[in-house]
Write a protein that binds this DNA or RNA. Structure first.
Lengths: 333, 333
DNA sequence: TTGTACGCGTTATCAA
DNA sequence: TTGATAACGCGTACAA
């Protein structure tokens, strides 16, 4: 079943059928009804390959999500679905592997789907420098700053990772902790981890202390890796009264490792996570964490994108304030 | 950049370029190198719209995933990526809303992408009865039985939800519990919930007891809903010594509600979940649960699909044994 | 081994 | 308001 069949069965021509299906103005009510009657009866849907191939300009908004298992991004996607359901822009949501280039992928999809704009959920400076020049449509990098990249069509919205981490660490220092362990991502590959690392260093400096590298343990963003890394740290004889994990999932894994040592959280070791995942509030103790401003980031990034698309505003860059969620996993000493 | 440009720049014709790009045999090494040189230099990728539009038969396998936030399915997808990375079949992974029809969506994508086969992660009998007849390619319904549907090209792989639930409930009954609360999905809409409900009834019967409807509380599959539902149950004066939740997320929410009442798990109330999510092992107490055989389900469903595709085997239906993971959230009384 | 020409299902342009 | 027709980018017979 193609629009050709529709044309034959409805008695109208290809052109008219296409216009009906796309809600174009210059169609008689009679023609519209005739075509729609057949559509209802047969359950026809346009072939999006042919549509995209021919269309010079689509009407959708593309969201490229980096990493499938990322709960934070999953929540963001939900927000976007909510936000854009109130507009006329269909969403194309594309998930790519952590290791693939989001910009290259966006380039391919821009050619194929011709979206009005692109939202990047996660991304690396490196990839943008390399290939973003090929992308012409308004875009927003979410969860990272593009201010220094200098692309005219790339806005950005992020929480201040450096300050957020600093805030978490200061919370621990302020509570009297001096022996800290920090668990986070690979500093050579993750912009985010690097920013948060810098925040740690800064917080220490502000307290007149030195953040020593041996306090930093590299791990992947998963429960299991958090568990293994913390376990290894403790096995290596690391001593601490507090742990800052750069992700809640890492923190949750670390807590298990701590408990397996016969230690308690927060009585023996305090723990602060990062992200503010829903699960954190269902643990005991509830996880203290740096809560990502998910809703605000989604709102602002969507707004920025729409301003670029609809009102041709120039790219701009925003930093959303985070908030420290003080729950029950930190103890004063 | 299209293959037309490639043809011009490489000095070969459209046909030759297309043959190179698709790895066809009748191409000289010289032509291949000339074309690939330009491809490398410019970073060309085929336009999949045009490709799919033209191709009468693709080489991919389609996975339709019902529900974005579903951790269980997320783990399954990872398994599939692993399994199929060792084959020559590219994966097309499509996420749809819980409320949309997976079969209708698969129909559209079959017309557009022409995959060799379809894997349904989640699905409702109703939708298959309604529209599956339009789908001609080998398919497998995962997480639900299609035995009674009688389609020649639809296999199925599922865990025995009825037995699984019965096993969980019997575990509680065997541990001496008699006052049970059961939290699960909407019985009028979810095949899975209904099967598990029947398992509960059966387990009670085997113990010479009656499973009374007031013990069943309908809730959504989320931490929050589990929490709210359990809280409401307790507020309504429901008394119990054990809870069976039809999903780990519900169980985790319920546990919080229990604790907020000043009760302990498992000392005052035992809890059994369902699914065997990774997080369950990082809680305290570790969550006792009916573990879904994720790996086996992925392996068998992939095998069944490939047998249909490659060796034209008829559809068949398998039930994978589940296992009860006895952790720390159940107490004998 | 290579090149040419046609068609996939749709939108867009133009003339009627 | 409608209809005919030319693309869109690609794969593939078929001819060379």
């Amino acid at each position: 079943m193609t629009i050709k069949d529709l044309a034959r069965e409805s008695g109208y021509s290809l052109g008219t059928v296409s216009r009906v299906l796309n809600g174009h103005p210059n169609v008689s009510e009679k023609a519209r009804r005739a075509v729609m009657a057949v559509v209802e009866a047969q359950g026809f849907e346009l072939n999006s390959n042919a549509k995209n191939l021919k269309q010079s300009q689509g009407d959708s908004i593309l969201i490229v999500v980096k990493g499938r298992g990322n709960e934070l991004f999953a929540s963001m996607v939900e927000q976007y679905q909510d936000i854009f359901s109130r507009t006329a822009y269909p969403l194309i949501i594309d998930y790519i592997d952590e290791l693939d280039s989001e910009v290259r992928r966006a380039g391919v999809l821009c050619r194929e789907k011709k979206p009005l704009g692109v939202l990047f959920l996660g991304g690396t400076h490196h990839n943008f420098l390399e290939e973003f020049s090929k992308i012409q449509v308004p875009s927003v990098l979410v969860t990272g700053s593009a201010r220094n990249l200098g692309f005219g069509n790339l806005s950005s919205v992020c929480a201040d990772d450096c300050k957020g981490a600093a805030c978490a660490v200061e919370h621990l220092l302020h509570s009297g902790h001096r022996q800290l362990l920090v668990l986070g991502g690979d500093l050579t590959r993750s912009d985010t981890s690097r920013n948060r690392y810098n925040g740690c260093v800064e917080a220490f400096r502000r307290y007149g202390l030195d953040f020593k590298d041996p306090c930093y343990y590299t791990c992947r963003y998963s429960y299991q890796s958090g568990y293994e890394t913390m376990k290894r740290a403790l096995d290596d004889g690391a001593t601490c009264t507090a742990v800052f994990a750069m992700a809640d999932v890492i923190a949750i894994g670390a807590i298990r490792a701590i408990r397996e040592r016969g230690l308690r959280v927060p009585e023996d070791i305090s723990v602060v996570g990062y992200d503010g995942l829903a699960i954190g509030d269902f643990l005991q103790p509830r996880l203290s964490t740096v809560a990502q401003p998910i809703e605000a980031m989604a709102q602002r990034s969507a707004a920025l994108l729409l301003e670029q698309i609809e009102r041709h505003m120039p790219a701009s860059h925003e930093t959303i304030p985070f908030s420290l969620a003080r729950k029950e996993s930190v103890r004063e000493i």
